[in-house]
Amino acid sequence: MSRRVLVVAFDDEHRLLAALRHARATPHEVLDVHAPYPVHGLPELLGERPSRLPWACLAGGLAGLGLGWALQVWTSVHDWPLNVGGKPHDSAPAFVPVAFELTILLAGLGVVAAFFLAERRRSPAPAAACAVRATDDRFVVSIGARDATFDGPALARRFREEFGACEVEEILVEDAT
């Protein structure tokens, strides 16, 4: 099954936001917005939930801390206890730097890994010609037809005239589901 998608491009983030507010008021679904840089207020407008990436970061960090400390204590106290400079086998203060660095390392790698995993499920850029410039200077809204009232040309005109869209295109998208 395929559906019709209206791809509207703006050359200014303010016009985009105004148009987006309008689009949200229509029954049509705002599928995604593509922009050359993160536009402030956009996620709120799209009703995004707060990201869960910080939790991944925390988990990575805790894993790093735990593993780092465990590695040091296990190797230095249990597996191969040696008299090094007369210091106790469990030289806790000396274990802080490595544990700290491992905390940071795994936290950082954890959050990036989570980011990449999350990004695997994101919606791709619409195949419209104008959308290609979303990585350059265009702010592109994709509006998907939800019901029969979807009137592409009318909407396009509206965006063009009322919200200053610089380009509007209607495409057919094969639905994955």
């Binding site: 040696l82 008299n83 090094v84 400079g85 007369g86 210091k87």
Partner: peptide, 20 residues
Amino acid sequence: HCENAPCETVCPVLATVHNS
């Protein structure tokens, strides 16, 4: 042959350690 040998503490690979 220091008991609290400064050399031992700093060796990264435990190439110098204290004997019993």
